[in-house]
Amino acid sequence: MIVKQASINDIPNIVELLKLSLGESVVGKSSTIWNFKHADNPFGSSHVLVATDDEKFVGVRALMKWNWQLGNDVWVAYRAVDTATHPDFQGKGVFKKLTLKALDDVQENQETFVFNTPNDKSRPGYLKMGWVVVDSLPIAIVPTILYIFLSFLRKKMLYSNQIQNEKLDELCKVHNNDLSEKKSIFTPKSATYLKWRFEENPMQKYKVVSTNDSYVAMYIKKRRFFKELRVVEVISSNESIHKKVIQNAIIDYAIQNRCWITTLSNKDLFPFRFFGKFGPKLTFKSLTKDTLFINKALDINNWKYSLGDLELF
């Protein structure tokens, strides 16, 4: 078996291997989606390894670049995402070999870390390779139906989906500076990032509403017996001042689409909500000797994340 770094010419074979190993899901597997995730990412191209046996593609492992910031220090990190093993080679250590090699590669010239939110089936494999569970993600669950009775009292708000990039970058700068001063671990936002992550995402249709002082991205998730509105990004120049505008944008869209439950990472945005560790488990693999950062990262309360930062896509 030969392990090598993937090239652009390998993408069709990678996509076919993903389909063969994982099957088709709600979101199809294609070169367009692969390039969106691993080539067009504003944080940089992913580190992708493939394994071949007699010229047949038998394994793939992708580490997607992702930036996190603490204070003024920006960490180039990696999120462990797409991985697949050919059915004929499962149970033969392909996943482990590719993952450990990828870790060695990204650690070689930098101090970094790897994170992800694996499901219960794949998490044990990561733990055996040195990942640790930080904690389950705290999430706010808002019973949107309670707000229907108050909706007629609210003044209708005007939003724009066409906020100019210059204004949006200014808004992101204020947002980033605020989190930097709070010494939280957060993903620094920019107009380029938001456009890539939410506005031009071929995998999921997001609803974006914005003003010059706030930006909200969300989507509808269909459950078995109800629809959930998942709020994946909230950016504001001053949340205490603009809270009502943000609340109204979310509630208006939830009511329009009959989403009786709304979920988001912000526990303070809605007064009537349940807040607890309802989300997936965040796992962390340190590739740095910076013990101060490691200790900070191992406490979930130090992460100021949006659901868009950590949800699978």
Rank of each mutant, 00 (worst) to 15 (best):
F115W: 11
A140Y: 08
P124L: 10
P124E: 03
T117N: 08
V133M: 08
Y126W: 03
V106W: 07
N119A: 14
Q110T: 06
G125W: 05
P124H: 11
S136Y: 14
Q107K: 15
A140I: 05
K97S: 14
K97F: 09
L137H: 01
V133S: 13
V134L: 08
L98C: 01
Q110D: 14
K121M: 09
S136H: 15
F115N: 01
F113C: 11
W131F: 13
V106M: 04
P143F: 14
V134P: 04
F95C: 07
F115D: 01
P118I: 06
I141P: 03
T117L: 11
V132D: 01
R123F: 02
D104M: 12
G125Y: 00
T117K: 07
N119L: 11
L137G: 03
Q110L: 09
K97T: 13
L137C: 08
P118F: 04
F113E: 02
N109I: 00
A140W: 04
V133K: 06
S122Y: 05
V114S: 05
G125L: 02
P124T: 10
K101C: 01
P124K: 07
L137K: 08
I141R: 14
V133N: 06
K101M: 12
K96R: 15
P124F: 09
K97N: 14
D104E: 15
D135C: 09
Q110W: 04
D135Q: 12
V132P: 10
